[in-house]
Simulated scan of single mutants.
Amino acid sequence: MDFNIIAPMAVTDVELTASNIPEDDHPEWAAGTNYAKGDLVISLTSHRIYQSMQDGNLGNDPLTDDGSWWFDLRATNRWSAFDQRRSNTASHPDQITYSITPTQDCDAIALFGLTAGSVRIEVWDGPSRIYDQTFVMVDTGHVVSVYTWFFGGIVYTRQKVLNGFPGYIGHRIDITIAAVGATAKVGHIVLGRNHLLGQVMNLPRISFVSHSRKGYDDFGDEILVKRGSTRKIEVALLVPTIQAPRVMDIMAEIDGLATAFYASGTGPTYGIEGLGFLDDHGQPLDVAGESTFPLIMKTLK
């Protein structure tokens, strides 16, 4: 199987042209309003929510504040799908829609932290719809017996990766995340160029990383605090040595960015799919023709 990453495209006001999620989480900051401690405002420039740190907060712009008056809380609901964090989810009753016009070639999309029955991707070239696919998000991997087939309940997958669609500069990409009768949610959306890095060698390692607190107090009683978990993916990639500069350039491009990665091919992918960041990448070169590159990715919560 092959290891792929999607180098993320920045999504700004230029790219995000429409959404059914209103940006009205809280009142917009106004210079003439005297805010009390704990008051919440939003900025339609940064698309973030700010909390007042003290009373008598008058005339202090949260965009230029040094942290004395305002605390940068999180992205607004509409923009939570593009804030490089999976835990801040964008949500809306029944469905979420986004219209995005790429400013660079974009042939892949990945959605994470989904609460949805289906996801629809449409691509428009002017008035012509040139791509239209709907994906049902039922996860059949949880069916492990006849009993679970009939009585196990419906389990929905939390992520979807898609590549090969015609998301060229100037095309409009419409995303519809549907959860009819419920609240549709998405944690993060990555759009960008798909890169095949190399072939996954035998024995990839996927580790469960718990962030829960587990210990004992002075009397020996257990202290258990439930927190989130992440995964650590360690793979060795077989890459033609002549392509080493290409791989190094891609690693430099995605360093420090929330990046989608996944395995492709005819064999089972063993859960090598997620939203994460590059943790380490070694490049011992074999001048004979092919090199084995160790790669470590860590997922976001």
Rank of each mutant, 00 (worst) to 15 (best):
A184F: 08
V123N: 07
I6C: 08
H26A: 14
D83S: 05
I272L: 15
F71T: 04
E290G: 01
G113P: 05
Y131E: 06
E253Q: 12
A30L: 07
L111M: 15
D39T: 10
T266D: 14
P245H: 09
N57C: 09
D249P: 00
H211V: 00
G67C: 10
V138E: 04
T241A: 10
V14D: 11
V143H: 01
L237M: 04
L16V: 09
R85N: 10
G256P: 04
I173M: 14
S46C: 02
T148M: 00
S145R: 01
T148W: 00
E222N: 05
V11W: 11
G271M: 02
A10Q: 13
E222F: 05
D55G: 07
I254Q: 06
L197H: 06
D279N: 12
S212K: 09
N77H: 06
D24M: 01
V138G: 00
T134I: 13
S43F: 01
A263N: 03
K232Q: 15
D83A: 08
L73V: 15
F135R: 13
A179G: 01
W69E: 11
R120W: 00
I96Y: 07
L197P: 03
D94H: 02
E234G: 07
I173K: 09
L238D: 12
F82K: 06
N20Y: 04
A7Q: 04
D94Y: 03
T76N: 07
S68N: 14
M1N: 08
F293S: 09
A236H: 10
I296P: 01
D39E: 12
D286G: 02
T45V: 13
A182V: 03
G164D: 10
A7G: 01
T266K: 10
R172K: 14
M297K: 04
D286P: 04
I233C: 07
G192R: 12
P8Y: 03
G152K: 00
V14I: 09
I272V: 14
W149M: 02
F112K: 02
Y98T: 13
V200D: 01
T259I: 06
G126K: 08
I109V: 14
T33M: 08
H195K: 10
S210P: 03
N88P: 00
E122M: 13
V247A: 07
G59F: 02
S264L: 06
S212W: 12
V186S: 04
Q159L: 09
V123S: 04
I5W: 08
F135K: 11
G38I: 09
D94A: 12
P27F: 08
A288P: 00
A244P: 00
G192M: 05
V190M: 05
I254N: 04
H195L: 09
A31E: 14
G289I: 05
V14P: 00
R129W: 04
L237I: 12
M9G: 00
D279T: 12
L40W: 06
A258W: 02
F71M: 11
D279V: 12
S91L: 05
G220V: 13
D279H: 08
G32C: 02
I296W: 01
F277V: 13
T17M: 08
M9L: 14
V180Y: 04
Y168S: 15
